[in-house]
């Protein structure tokens, strides 16, 4: 019977607390802007701060003001971005400017492995053992650390290479952080070409290791009419500020390590390559 006073006391305390709060919010509550409230209801409410604001409330306020786009919420992902964009009457695609891209095309038919790897099947573990079993020490390890971390399942592994589906990518940047080889970067969503190699080895050395690797011949640099490509540290780098997407570089590259993009990277990134023979 000892429980009765205890239970009663808890009940009374809770009741008083509830009443106080109810009256306080009824008579002292500040009217929140309706848009802010609706946007706030869409957000996950985890107050994680991944968007760069102090919490979901302040992010909702910034969204309603139109200061930022709806793509910043990482836990919410594209679903939340879509819902908030609907409320605010903006196009969620317009706000998305970047997609992740894997700069490697070292499939088993163009490069070899030097060793059999028999350890933990994650890229980070693989990278710790002498940089991985591949001949090229710059390339994709293909264990899918990025794919397992991707919140929207936009990354899959095909032919031992990670591939990002630009339709599903929410540009959260998690894959860029987890990749131990640092071969994933952001490229503009409207980019028409991309370099699919990350090797900084000298041309001849790269060529021995991977027939799809950038040999730093500089042909792209010379033939780009807009001066958008530079070979920096033995690797072609595209300046997307200047690139117009004419596609000349992709056509003349002797090892086809510059890829045309669009139509989901020309149906899962295009094949290594028609004019693969360097002697031509």
């Amino acid at each position: 019977m000892e429980i009765i006073p205890a239970a009663l006391l808890m009940l009374i305390t809770a009741l008083i607390a509830a009443l106080i709060l109810a009256f306080a919010s009824r008579y002292m509550g500040v009217k929140v802007d309706d848009t802010v409230r609706r946007v706030r209801n869409c957000l996950p409410g985890a107050n994680c701060g991944a968007c760069g604001y102090a919490g979901c409330d302040s992010y909702a306020e910034a969204l309603a003001k139109g200061d930022v786009g709806p793509e910043l919420c990482l836990p919410g992902g594209s679903e939340v971005a879509r819902l908030t964009a609907e409320i605010l009457g903006i196009d969620p695609c317009e706000t998305r400017k970047l997609v992740a891209y894997v700069h490697c095309n070292g499939t088993p038919d163009v490069t070899q492995r030097t060793a059999e790897y028999d350890g933990l099947m994650t890229c980070s573990a693989m990278c710790l053992s002498c940089g991985g079993p591949g001949l090229c020490k710059y390339g994709c390890l293909g264990c899918g650390d990025c794919a397992s971390k991707c919140p929207t399942d936009a990354i899959f592994i095909k032919n031992n290479i990670a591939i990002v589906d630009p339709e599903k990518c929410i540009s959260c940047g998690i894959c860029i952080k987890v990749c131990p080889k640092h071969i994933i970067t952001f490229i503009p969503v409207e980019a028409k070409v991309a370099v699919i190699c990350s090797s900084h080895d000298k041309g001849a050395s790269t060529r021995k290791k991977c027939s799809a690797g950038c040999i730093a011949c500089g042909k792209c640099e010379r033939s780009c009419p807009y001066g958008a490509i530079k070979v920096i540290d033995n690797l072609a780098v595209i300046d997307y500020e200047k690139c117009t997407g004419c596609g000349i570089c992709a056509e003349i590259c002797p090892v086809s390590c510059i890829s045309k993009l669009g139509e989901f990277n020309i149906k899962y990134r295009y094949k290594p390559t028609q004019n693969n023979d360097i002697s031509k």
Binding site: L9, T13, L21, M28, V30
Partner: peptide, 29 residues
């Protein structure tokens, strides 16, 4: 007074949570 000292943790949490909420509402206004 009622010999219910063992309830202090539960009651305190309840009271503090209410208090902070109330303080926040008042402050906002």
């Amino acid at each position: 007074e009622f010999g219910l000292e063992y309830l202090e943790t539960v009651v305190f949490i309840l009271v503090i949570a209410t208090l902070v909420q109330l303080a926040e509402i008042t402050m906002k206004k």
